[in-house]
Computed example of a mutant assay.
Amino acid sequence: MALFGAGAVGGYVGGYLAHAGHDVTLIDLWPAHIEAIRTSGLELSGPEGATRVTPRVLGIGEVSSLVKSEPIDVAFVSVKSYDTEWIATLIKPYLAKDGCVVSLQNCLNEETIARVIGRERTLGCVVASISVALFEPGRIRRERARRTEGHNVFRVGEIDGRMSERASLIADALQSVDNATVTGNLIGERWSKLANNAMNSGIGATTGLSAKQGIAHPVLRGFMIDLASEAAGIADRLGHRLEKIAKLDAGLFVRTANGNQDARAELEQKLIALADTLPVERLSSMGQDVQKGRRTEIDFLNGYVVDKGLEAGIPTPANARVVEIVHRIERGELKADLGNLVGS
């Protein structure tokens, strides 16, 4: 196995796969992280304590050395969405004839990988509520305890929804990291998570506030509902079967998108109740990217909603507004601030 992108998610998954005895190679772009793993191993910590593993690790410029190894059976992609295409191109020469590539990413990148690798060799894995952070080179910390009963962190699936043996084998391997299962609704799961990310990341990136803080603000709460409902309405129009969005019935978001005010009022009350379970300090990953001055995945999250809205004939004013603001923040014209959405 190979993990392309050994940051918080990729490093955590690859580290625990190696800890379980799988033959794993981590490949990353950050020289200090690579050197720390080579020198002292990879530390994986969390509520249960810390584990240190010593997987094989390569810098991106050392990938050509893979020609000396057995071809890769399973390559996980855990890089930012804007790096997907060139990473897939990089993987292709080293992939076994019957090997496959699994997107372990936030966005709907399976089609991008499939264009490079082939649709028949592409799978996806939705990662839900893993809450990990690469807080310094060679050290990854998880906020949540592993093995939460009734919650599958990993949901592996084929693009076409068939239940395949290889998806089951990959899910079995991921069980060594945390609870995992096979889904026959990969694209529906992706859209459900996209709706949640459009809501939370949209608020985090534009205002610098967490989801909990956003829900507490009446204006932002309504805007968050708009963001998620636009995505849910598009997914429904395109024929995708949605799963729960932010632990709530997706039908509420779809009905809200269709103008049902009773559904919107119910959704608002359920979000307020949900906020009580959220930590105030947990900023979305895109909000963290803005904080650190890094390029965001805006075009692959809220921007994807806007693009698909055009395809489905559904207006997306809330998501389009977020895209515009985040692009301005990236260019240095604005800073993340409540005023970007309230009183403007």
Rank of each mutant, 00 (worst) to 15 (best):
E297H: 12
E143H: 12
R121E: 00
P317R: 03
L310G: 04
D172N: 15
S81D: 13
I314H: 02
A250Y: 03
V9Y: 06
E35L: 12
V306I: 05
R255A: 10
I117R: 01
L186Q: 07
G14L: 04
R141T: 13
K92W: 10
T256Y: 01
D83A: 11
S69T: 11
P55L: 11
W191L: 00
G214C: 08
I272H: 14
P137R: 07
W30G: 07
P218N: 11
E111Q: 07
V67Q: 11
I170M: 03
Q175T: 02
G150V: 09
T89F: 05
L44K: 10
C107R: 03
V280A: 15
T181V: 10
D160L: 12
V126D: 03
G118A: 15
V101A: 01
V57C: 01
V342P: 09
R115Y: 00
T112K: 09
E165Q: 15
T39R: 15
D249H: 05
A88Y: 00
K92A: 10
N196T: 02
S64R: 10
K80G: 03
E85Y: 06
G239I: 13
M286L: 12
H327S: 11
R331F: 09
G10H: 02
Y12L: 02
M286A: 11
R237Y: 01
A145N: 09
D83P: 00
A312R: 08
N185L: 07
H151V: 14
V127K: 10
G99E: 06
E311R: 09
T181E: 07
R282K: 15
L209H: 04
D160P: 10
N109Q: 14
I298F: 12
R146T: 10
V63D: 07
L341W: 00
G21C: 15
G332T: 09
W30T: 06
A96T: 04
V254S: 07
R282H: 15
G204W: 02
L278N: 08
A36S: 11
S229N: 09
S210R: 04
E333R: 05
P218E: 13
V305N: 01
E111Y: 01
A2L: 06
G138A: 11
A96I: 04
R294V: 12
I225S: 02
D307H: 12
A8T: 14
V219F: 07
L209Y: 08
G233Y: 05
E189S: 04
E62N: 09
M286K: 08
G46F: 11
N196F: 08
G7T: 05
H217G: 04
E158S: 11
N106P: 10
L26H: 00
A32M: 05
L108G: 04
G204K: 03
D299K: 08
W86T: 12
I245L: 14
